[in-house]
Amino acid sequence: MGLKLFRFFLFFGTIVLYSCSEKITLPAKFSSQLNYCAPTINYQYDSQFFPITALDSFLLKNPEISQNFTQHDILVANAIGVLPTLQKILTLKKDSSLSVKLEKTNYKLFIQKRLLITATAIDGLASEIDCEGERADQLAGYLDNLNDKRNRRLTVASIIAGSATTVATVLLDNGNAQNLVGIGGGLLSATLGGLTAFPSHKKIVFKHVRNILTDIWQAPVSSNVYPPSIWYMLNDRHFSNSGNQTILANIKNRWISYEFEGKADLDEQDLLFKTGGMYKADDLHSRANLLNQLQATIRSLHQDLYSFSLHLNSLE
């Protein structure tokens, strides 16, 4: 009887461990989903409103701009593509005729329209980033729930194994059998309980062909994901609080310090910054954190637009 009970414990343990195994989880409703956060169309940007690359040369030819605007406002105007229009307003500044006033008003309205377009671009990009973060959080929650169920099953199984071992050793009258069952049941109970201390490695397929994190990490000269105006602001160091590094570099440095603890290994980089792959819950939480930090930074660009708008409205 003792040998039969010992075999029962082995069989019971095998069943429980199999049910809690770290098999890859591929629910169709998640693994095959499309990226519903990406824009439904490709944006077309008018090249005449791209930031001027030879900015110093333009300012040398039009010194009145530097005389009337701060460096920060000049950079914002360049980002939204209105430096030539700003120069036209300043050229007409001394003329107080009604027709010129009307012309200056039209120029200002045009600049305000460009400000609105850029503000809308910031909001649209921030919304996409927010959606991507929620998407990662949703799947992370799904895996967290699976892992919680695993730990509950292991805990219950450990209690059952311990209780069964106690009852069996009391009922058995053979010393060797008692020892055999006690050792087997104790080992099983300890193993099941100990497994709850180790994290689960269940994974799920998560794809992001349009990866909004990639350009921040790789820092290319131009971006196919970020609008030219926003990409310009992210890549000019004068838009950052310190003025020493670009906003883009600051974002990446914060990611490395807080999310990667000083260094991101190549497998982690491939997973987070390419087209996706097999994600664990921790990986999904990390992606959501990166996206949340990025979203906050993108939204803060509204402050730059607001500052320039105030100065623009103060012009006579």
Rank of each mutant, 00 (worst) to 15 (best):
A249N: 14
F206A: 05
L290H: 06
H311E: 15
I298R: 01
G184E: 13
P27W: 02
V209W: 05
E316R: 15
L60H: 06
V156I: 15
Q295E: 11
D267W: 10
D123L: 15
K61I: 07
M278E: 00
E103T: 14
Y43V: 10
G276D: 03
E316C: 04
G162W: 04
V205M: 12
G124Y: 07
A288L: 02
D265N: 14
E261Y: 09
T214W: 00
S240C: 07
L284H: 00
L248P: 01
L234D: 03
I256K: 03
G276K: 00
A140P: 04
N42C: 07
E261W: 06
L83K: 04
F239R: 01
S240V: 01
I24H: 07
G194M: 11
K252R: 15
T120D: 11
L83Y: 00
N106M: 12
S21G: 13
T275Y: 07
N292L: 05
T155V: 12
I160E: 01
L234K: 07
E316S: 13
G162F: 04
S257D: 13
K93R: 15
S32D: 07
E132T: 04
S307M: 08
D236C: 06
D46I: 03
N241Q: 14
K101L: 15
E268N: 07
L301P: 02
T275L: 13
N253M: 11
I129W: 04
P63S: 05
T105S: 00
S19G: 14
A79T: 08
Q295M: 12
L86V: 13
N78S: 08
S158E: 03
L291W: 01
L92K: 00
P227H: 05
K4I: 14
I256L: 08
D95F: 11
S223Y: 05
D148T: 15
R254N: 15
S163G: 14
G276Q: 00
G124C: 10
R135Q: 03
E134W: 06
G194E: 11
W231V: 01
I24K: 14
I251Y: 04
F308A: 00
A161F: 08
L171C: 07
L248E: 00
S163M: 15
S314Y: 14
D304F: 09
T70A: 10
R210P: 02
T14A: 13
S57N: 09
T118M: 12
H72K: 15
A164E: 06
M233I: 08
V170M: 12
K207W: 01
L213H: 01
A121H: 11
A140N: 07
I74S: 03
K104G: 02
P63C: 05
G162I: 04
E103I: 13
I122E: 11
H238G: 05
I160K: 10
N289Y: 07
A296T: 14
Q33F: 05
Y45K: 06
Q71L: 13
E259F: 09
K104P: 00
K207P: 02
D173F: 12
T40S: 15
